[in-house]
């Protein structure tokens, strides 16, 4: 690991100021000389592997603003402070009651220890676990732009079938982000340019020709909160995660579903898919396919077909298309059948 300077800013404005001073604005946050750290579960791992090489770490855990550590619920909004730990959010009874999808997506992620460490903002910004990205001896367009993609023709069982490009097929492995994108969440950001809000759906960028550019954040942007709208319908929401083992594994396919039902008729479905795409993936085509329909197996299958219509399989991950569809169908039916 490269040595780094360690600092512990006292408040958000200090963090932004130090970051702006040491980061080249042209740098991606993941490549900048100065990087933020909170839970450390993703960044420390990648620093050990030589994938992340910050020269200066700004530890956000001492930021004095109490709202960073609070979950506030009111006016149809759940506001998660950025430093709330995944475990705390998962255990919050009100969140679970209001929107089970949020709690389930958190509870099914990682392990008890990691959930105790990882901050919510850090979690949504976690980087791909692509094996070829993790190990610096492989070519990787995301890690070293222009070097090529070893996964494309390599062992790509884990890799994405949606949102891929010729340069990158690395999966976005997070779970919570699937809930957030399905629920039209918003992130609150403070940066050199002042405070601003961004739709969660705009936070992550498709790999395209620049898989190294992962988000629309500047290197001195600090996410301070994530806001999720809720209403009566959000009680009928659910996260289904399918993986090789029962726990502590990334999704092979997952589905975040929230259904606004009028009797058996779908007023509005909100759907996101995990484990199958390069970024948190809102399945709008599936949602549209369900609009106004009565949800049964056949309708669910039509929606699942729509969700994967554009999927691009590779040699070892072609199964993710049928698996992703089946996962969505099962999630839809289970959500329909929830007692709320």
């Amino acid at each position: 690991m490269r040595p780094f300077v360690y600092e512990r800013p006292a408040d958000v404005s200090a963090a932004v100021a130090v970051a702006s001073r040491f980061a080249d604005q042209q740098d991606q946050p993941t490549k900048a000389d100065v990087q933020f750290i909170a839970g450390a579960t993703n960044l420390a791992d990648y620093m050990k592997l030589g994938v992340a090489k910050p020269k200066r770490l700004l530890d956000l855990n001492a930021l004095r603003e109490p709202t960073l550590r609070q979950i506030k619920i009111g006016d149809g909004i759940i506001r998660f402070g950025a430093l709330v730990r995944m475990g705390e959010a998962a255990d919050n009874d009100d969140v679970r009651r209001i929107c089970p999808l949020l709690s389930e997506s958190l509870k099914l992620a990682a392990s008890g220890q990691i959930r105790n460490m990882a901050s919510l903002a850090g979690n949504v910004l976690q980087r791909t676990r692509c094996e070829y990205f993790r190990e610096t001896s492989w070519p990787c367009n995301k890690r070293d732009p222009g070097s090529g993609c070893a996964a494309m023709e390599g062992f790509n069982r884990q890799h994405a079938v949606l949102g891929t490009s010729d340069g990158c097929i690395a999966t976005y492995h997070g779970d919570f982000a699937q809930a957030l994108i399905a629920l039209d969440a918003t992130v609150e950001i403070e940066g050199k340019r002042g405070a601003r809000r961004m739709e969660f759906a705009k936070l992550h960028r498709l790999p395209g020709d620049t898989p190294d550019i992962e988000t629309n954040l500047a290197p001195d942007d600090v996410i301070v909160a994530i806001e999720v709208p809720f209403a009566a319908w959000s009680r009928r929401s659910h996260y289904l995660k399918i993986r090789d083992r029962e726990s502590y594994a990334f999704a092979l396919a997952s589905a975040a579903v929230a259904l606004d039902l009028d009797g058996n008729m779908i007023r509005h479905a909100r759907i996101a898919l995990g484990g199958v795409a390069t970024v948190p993936w809102r399945a709008k085509a599936a949602e549209e396919a369900l609009q106004g329909k009565t949800l049964d197996q056949e309708v669910a299958e039509t929606a699942a077909d729509a969700a994967f219509a554009e999927a691009q399989p590779r040699r070892y991950n072609a199964f993710k298309i049928p698996l992703g569809k089946r996962t969505l169908v099962r999630a839809l039916l289970e959500t329909r059948d929830m007692k709320v």
Binding site: P66, L68, R69, Q70, I71, K72, I73, G74, D75, I77, R79, G81, L83, V84, R85, E88, D91, N92, D94, V95
Partner: peptide
């Protein structure tokens, strides 16, 4: 808004 929980209450 009502404060439901804080970061380090456990």
């Amino acid at each position: 808004p009502k404060v439901i929980s804080t970061g380090t209450s456990t």
